[in-house]
């Protein structure tokens, strides 16, 4: 038996909106730790890892580890029917072939339940080793989204370079080139407006903008995004999900051969 009650149901809507264009079908894994997902995009270039810790739910019952295979586009359709302020409860029996989403309005005057068919999905997990990063950039998530969107109108790839000067996002295309530099800046009114650059070594990596733009669908989840870079390793683009977890996108770099 699985029963997860999330008071901030709107968070789950935002999580699905950030995943559904990247991944078609995925297994949601439920354990005592929390509600999690690991999935690759269809071309196996990017990987997404979601964790919503059990403590973040108002009620979390998971009698035994359970894997729920869902079509994310269909799940997003169901969750769109919930109000942004609704309380969302996810329910499933141990051997169930469906999952129930229950939506309660904040003042309890409307209660809805939606039943969605589950799928059998063959998926293997990848072990993600702990890595020491050469550079970690924390910046406003809306700014990062704006940069990715702007650069993708000019080129297909972005070179992200971190030096003492700051973090530089560069692209080139048929019409010309573009460079955007963001400097370390903590002299801001609100902490979420800060750009914090921690650099052990200079690093410069190239990535497909199409994927970066897809990751920025998670922007409504968090005011800040963390971009972790190391030579020849996938970049990690992380958004916090309130105080209860995170969504991490990993993208393999394009390597000169």
């Amino acid at each position: 038996m699985l029963e997860l009650r999330l008071v901030q149901g709107g968070l789950l809507k935002k999580v699905l909106d950030s995943l559904k264009d990247l991944v078609n079908d995925a297994n949601f894994d439920c354990s005592a730790t929390g509600f999690s997902l690991q999935a690759m995009d269809s071309s196996h270039v990017a990987l997404v890892a979601l964790l919503l810790r059990s403590e973040g739910f108002e009620h979390y019952r998971c009698d035994r580890n359970l894997s729920l295979g869902m079509n994310l586009s269909n799940m997003a359709k169901m969750l769109k029917c919930a109000g942004n302020d609704d309380i969302v409860t996810i329910k499933a029996d141990d051997a169930a072939d469906s999952v129930t989403f229950m939506f309660e309005s904040p003042n309890q005057d409307k209660i809805a339940d939606f039943d969605m068919k589950l799928m059998d999905i063959d998926s293997e997990h990848l072990g993600i080793p702990e890595a020491e990063f050469q550079a970690i950039v924390r910046m406003p998530s809306a700014e990062f989204a704006r940069i990715c969107k702007d650069l993708s109108t000019i080129g297909d790839t972005v070179v992200i370079s971190v030096t003492k000067e700051g973090v530089k996002f560069s692209t080139r295309g048929d019409i010309g080139t573009a460079n955007i530099v963001c400097r370390h800046n903590t002299s801001v009114d609100k902490p979420e407006e800060a750009t914090i650059i921690e650099m052990e070594e200079t690093v410069s990596l190239t990535f497909a903008l199409r994927y970066m733009n897809s990751f920025t669908k998670a922007t409504p989840l968090a005011n800040q995004v963390t971009i972790s870079l190391s030579s020849d390793l996938p970049v990690v683009v992380e958004y916090k999900v309130a105080e209860m977890g995170h969504i991490r996108f990993y993208l393999a770099p394009k390597i000169e051969e």
């Binding site: 072990g127 790839t157 190239t206 996938p234 393999a252 390597i255 051969e257």
Partner: peptide
């Protein structure tokens, strides 16, 4: 020309 490897090149399956 840059080469795009799959993510599996970096992370092991288990």
């Amino acid at each position: 020309e840059n080469v795009q490897y799959n993510i599996e090149k970096y992370f092991e399956r288990f």
